[in-house]
Computed example of a mutant assay.
Amino acid sequence: MSLSVAQGFTKSLLMTVLSEIGDNTFFAAAILAMRHPRRHVLAGCLASLVVMTIISALLGWAAPNLISRKWAHHISTLLFFGFGLWTLWEMVTEDGEDELAEAEAKLDADLKASAASAKADSKKDDDSKRQRRSFLAQFFSPIFLKAFSITFFGEWGDKSQLATIGLAADENPLGVVIGGILGQALCTIAAVVGGKSLASKISEKMVSLAGGVLFLVFGIQSFLSPVDS
């Protein structure tokens, strides 16, 4: 493994773990795993996060090709400083239980909407629709699709996704992808196996503090590093 890949891998792994522990999608995976088969929840969440990580890294990789390398470097530096201050501000101003309560509320609302939709659809479905649905169900379980969609749209536009884009613009994209996927896998497995119990034992404020400091360290390191030609 080259030095650039190793550096991108290390930064991405640390950033992902500290950003995702205690996040909305972390609690969503934990709650889904309490209500549905764990293997479907884990598969759906992981598939979504792998896709999201690859998309984010590709966007970051493409950024220097759309704008100058110098500007991409400066923007990624500002992103690290901004996310560091954002994370520290959230630590100071937010209640640690809000994330769990918000995730539970969203999932409860989603379950009610799904139940109402299922009742309405059951009155309209004909034989051909039932056949199509059973065909799709052979490849994608409803729980897999639910876990995938909740995680994907929960992560889209989140600071961890934006930070991954910034990191891939400044580091080796391959290392960023591998580190990000490994970090997402570790967090998702922890959430599915015992996320709610784990969250009660880990201080969310300390995780936010570590994440904020890590972003600031990345920002300082990026600021002091010369711009690659």
Rank of each mutant, 00 (worst) to 15 (best):
A29E: 03
L111P: 07
D228I: 13
V177R: 02
R132C: 11
K106M: 06
N172S: 12
A168S: 05
D125Y: 14
I143S: 04
F223E: 10
A118L: 09
S222Q: 14
A118C: 08
C187Y: 03
F148D: 02
G60Q: 03
G60V: 06
R38W: 06
A116M: 03
L174H: 12
H73V: 04
R69F: 08
V50I: 13
L214E: 15
A57I: 02
V192C: 01
I54N: 09
H36F: 07
A62V: 09
F148I: 02
S76W: 04
T164N: 02
G154P: 05
A190G: 01
V217L: 10
R35P: 06
G22D: 04
K205W: 01
L14E: 06
G8S: 02
D121A: 12
R132K: 14
Q7M: 07
K201T: 12
L59W: 05
D108G: 06
S122T: 13
D170S: 15
S68T: 08
C45P: 00
T93M: 01
L111F: 11
L88C: 07
A105E: 12
S134H: 08
N24H: 07
D23W: 06
V213T: 06
T16G: 02
M15D: 11
I21W: 15
K119I: 06
A185H: 13
L3T: 00
Q131W: 02
S117H: 13
L18F: 14
L88A: 08
H36S: 09
T16Y: 00
V5M: 10
G211D: 10
D95H: 09
D228F: 09
V41T: 03
N24Q: 11
K112M: 12
G211E: 13
L182W: 04
A191I: 01
